[in-house]
Design a binder for these strands. Structure first.
Length: 210
DNA sequence: CCAAGGATACTC
DNA sequence: AGTATCCTTGGA
């Protein structure tokens, strides 16, 4: 994978739904002292502001925990869910506007064996990187190291343009894991993935009716 | 103090 | 398809 072109700042200042869709097919690179891992993003979820009840920033709610989500577009918002699963989001829009896109699944591109070792998984399929916690685990993304960092070609987390993504191959569904309190927001079609991609997360509750 | 988690891995 | 479980954060 040569010729990687980093996403520019303008990319992160589009509508959050646009960013969620356009991130499909782009490449995420995570670098550490030990290795450089590359994967293609194939599933995302948009979190809007301020009326999205499913978002951590709903109603302008702000605390040290979600502060990074109010940073400038192009920042990483990484938080822990259920005590141990790290979740990686790309912040969207201007500073103090709490919008972001969650990276829900990726397709490994280089150093797949290292991702398998980190995950403790032998195969190369959706169990390896299909799920937001799995993505961070496989790529070595964690809150302590990465929350609040700027995403650019010089950073430990970088995003690069992918091949042109056919809009007809993008599937939209409700988001996963929305609680009841979230009410009507849970029905919004804010989850996007590339049709037919084998790495799409498939939790058990995937029977939708619309 | 307690309830709520943008989930995952393991059983049956 | 069910269930145990990780533990930090923030609001009451």
């Amino acid at each position: 994978m040569d010729n990687l072109i980093a996403l520019d700042q303008d990319f992160y200042h589009q509508d959050v739904i646009e960013v969620a869709k356009q991130l499909l097919g782009t490449y995420i690179r995570v670098s550490s002292d030990q290795e450089t891992l590359l994967a293609k993003i194939i599933e995302t979820e948009a979190y809007d502001f301020p009326l999205d009840r499913g978002s951590h920033t709903y109603g302008g709610k702000r605390s040290p925990k979600n502060e990074a989500m109010y940073a400038e577009g192009g920042t990483a918002y990484v938080y822990k869910c259920y005590g141990y699963h790290d979740m990686m989001n790309v912040v969207v829009g201007p500073k103090d506007i709490g919008k972001a896109v969650l990276i829900r699944a990726v397709e490994p591109v280089t150093n797949i064996e290292i991702m398998q070792r980190k995950r403790g998984i032998l195969g190369n399929h959706h169990l390896l990187t299909g799920g937001p916690g799995k993505v961070c685990h496989a790529l070595g993304i964690n809150k302590v190291t990465h929350n609040g960092i700027t995403i650019d070609s010089k950073s430990t987390i970088a995003l690069f343009k992918g091949d042109h993504q056919d809009p007809n191959m993008i599937v939209a569904t409700p988001r996963i894991g929305m609680s009841k309190h979230v009410a009507e927001s849970s029905n919004w079609l804010y989850r996007f993935y590339i049709e037919g991609n084998p790495y799409v997360s498939r939790p058990l509750k995937l029977s939708y009716n619309w």
